[in-house]
Design a protein around this nucleic acid. Structure first.
Lengths: 425, 425
DNA sequence: GTGTCGGCTGTAGGCCGACAA
DNA sequence: TTGTCGGCCTACAGCCGACAC
């Protein structure tokens, strides 16, 4: 009948296979999830202690509902600006409609965190896959006129090698997405000059995922040689969700009441973390928080760097100066450390970047730099627009000076490791 | 470029025109909204007093998130089982993705409802349009193979009359949807035997709205002769929305906290009412509530009727018997009237119907019936499956007996008027 | 090395009346 | 009266190398 899928596509094996149930209850492939979440996202390990910031949670909810965090809503039921919690569970998910990745965390508030033995919590983990590539789609890639142009080194690194004795060399690829749905593509090496292409099956994928030029697609080869694929929507596409379920005010209250009730009764509560929606992480490893708050001397005028994700899904550091200190909302959330630093950014293109950040988000440039700043760091020098990786020498120096300043093991919680996985292309 | 709409369609005038902003802030066409909401949905007038039931609100949220109303969540912050409120504002909306209709109500809790003068609130209003038709789509209607077959009487009633001197008679129709988006269709009268069809433009509409066989489409001609169109999804398609924004527990808390805070501070709060998602209305006109609670004698064994919407978007009444009385949740919500009646239904196909209803949802069959029940109402008689409208004689009798029992004006709040608008086809 | 285009081809989208329920 | 189908035509999806940045 008319409700069945097109027969030809199904017969030729280029139609998607059966998908998971819509509920998406199981835990997703962690490598793929992290690849889609991006290089900056790391999740604290289950069983570790974390600091939960209701303000940050509300910021995420407000961003999701496209409302500013309403100033008129009181802190009701009353709740402190941060809760030390045991991270009881983390499950990885992806939105059934948009493939947007998110994590559900189950938090158990700890009543007297100071009394507990400070076990050596390990830092946050970010298992970024090694054998993967990520390409931002061009107009040609997403048009119905043709297929997908695979970057040469990407194809050679991630896809099975073609049999080049064939003319033209071609094979069928099967890649599994976050919902365990299989997608079939014809991979061919042709054209003058020769190039790798995905042809048959590609347009089905593009239309099913509603991909547009500017969105990114990524392929992974996992340990068992299985191909995985995921997508990252362009930043402009805010997954608008005016949510006809609950008013934004009620959601705001819900965040507070759920946490308040859990803290009062020492019971668990659940939150969703949307890495690509939230302006900042609001569940921070306790060790990272402690180091940032107790081991860092911040003053107005201090110079720092902070990591951002580039449009090419890579990372780069931006320079800034601390211009002020103080609570973002001293009435409702006094003595919170959430975004307690007012900052200015060196580059004029910094319009979108936050004007308030939290202590644990920055990498301070300590005394050695203030005594002897290299020319590249002065406020007046106009550097050419930096490319990913052109700070490598500085990185090395930074690590040494920070170790000297903070006592050797400060780096683990600041996520220096494994950041440059996408810059080698 | 590739992001622009198909040129041919745009040039020929069969592509949708510019739409409203995604936020959908303005108030929608009320006639169209009510047509999409269905014949049973009525909204209390702005400025009237209503009763708000948190339990019912939570039921709707749970239905939207596909969770049962969790039994483990306490009534926190504490809130009474019902709040008498002033209905401060009502705005009509439609989901940007699904066209699902919903209403936002702003409620102001009234502290001492008994002290206020009981102004004669008018009953709820349901402006169902007169010049409209609604058709459930067939497999042929939604397939890409052809167009849309318009029922003859529908075309003659709602569409502009064709010029039958042309061969074949044809015209272009422009119909506006809930988002003020215009859709263009070619309306032609052809075939052997002759019939009305929508051809060019129809498949664009079907794919844009993602209509499937079983969904319904409805057309309205308003006062100014402007054509409006709306859709009703088939019941099976639960707009699943696991809502990666807030956990269902937090939403539950949010409902309670928002209402609790508003009641405590005598301030307004906002709720969304999703007519086609909610099992029952949870904002009830105060007058309707009072009449049902204080003027109705309910006892176990009592017979009643209740109105339901049929699959054909019409209405019919089902017979039932009260089998028990009592709070649905005596621990958290004692002395609530929400679904306080346990009921059984006469027909064996009653599997989906609620086993608990509220007083104001039923039409009790009062003493005259108990003294002298007509054969059709006895529990043992097996009536043939009733069709809409075959209770007309009974209706007439019911009205008289109820007026006698309840004092003359009881009918307005029970929505007897204007119910049979779709059964005449 | 790869983004975009013109050219070509095949298929499916879509308009028609036939026919039957 | 209207749901489904076969027939038919054509627009566009989609594969190809050319060419340029």
């Amino acid at each position: 009948m008319y409700s069945s899928p097109p027969a030809r596509l199904a017969d030729s094996g280029y139609a998607p296979a059966a998908a998971m149930d819509a509920g998406e209850r199981r835990n997703l492939n962690s490598e793929l999830w992290h690849a889609c979440a991006g290089p900056l996202v790391s999740l604290p390990p289950v069983g570790s202690r974390v600091v939960y910031f209701p303000q940050g949670h509300i910021e995420q909810v407000a961003a999701s509902t496209q409302k500013e965090a309403d100033a008129h809503i009181p802190n009701y039921p009353s709740i402190p600006p941060r809760l030390v919690c045991l991270l009881d569970n983390v499950t990885l998910h992806a939105d059934v409609e948009t493939d947007e990745v998110f994590a559900q965390m189950t938090l158990l508030p700890i009543q007297n965190p100071e009394k507990e033995a400070l076990a050596p919590d390990q830092g946050a983990v970010n298992k970024q896959p090694t054998e993967y590539f990520c390409k931002t789609l061009t107009a040609s890639d997403t048009s119905t006129h043709g297929g997908f142009s695979i970057p040469r080194r990407a194809a050679e690194k991630v896809f099975p090698t073609l049999d080049f004795t064939q003319t033209p060399p071609a094979q069928e690829l099967v890649a599994r997405d976050l919902h365990d749905q299989d997608w079939h593509f014809r991979h061919i090496y042709r054209g003058q000059p020769r190039r790798h292409l995905l042809t048959t099956g590609w347009s089905v994928f593009v239309s099913a995922k509603r991909l547009q030029a500017g969105d990114s697609v990524l392929f992974i080869r996992d340990d068992k040689g299985q191909l995985l694929l995921g997508i990252r929507r362009a930043n402009r596409q805010q997954t608008v969700m005016p949510s006809s379920v609950l008013s934004s005010d009620s959601m705001h209250f819900g965040v507070l009441a759920a946490a308040s009730h859990a803290a009062t009764t020492s019971s668990r509560f659940k939150i969703f973390y949307n890495p690509r929606q939230s302006p900042s992480e609001f569940v921070i490893p306790l060790a990272k928080y402690h180091k940032a708050v107790y081991n860092t001397q911040v003053t107005v005028g201090m110079r720092f760097r902070m990591v951002f994700e580039t449009e090419e899904s890579s990372v780069r550091r931006y320079m800034g100066t601390i211009t002020g200190l103080g609570d973002i909302d001293p009435i409702r959330w006094p003595k919170s450390h959430w975004r307690s630093l007012k900052v200015g950014w060196d580059e004029s293109t910094a319009g979108e970047r936050q004007h308030r950040v939290s202590l644990w988000e920055i990498e301070p440039l300590t005394t050695p730099f203030l005594l002897c700043p290299p020319p590249a760091l002065s406020l007046t020098s106009k550097r050419p627009r930096g490319m990913p990786g052109d700070d490598d020498e500085l990185d090395s120096f930074m690590k040494k000076s920070q170790m000297w300043a903070n006592g050797g093991d400060a780096l683990g919680s600041l996520k220096f490791g494994g950041l440059a996985m996408d810059t080698s292309w």
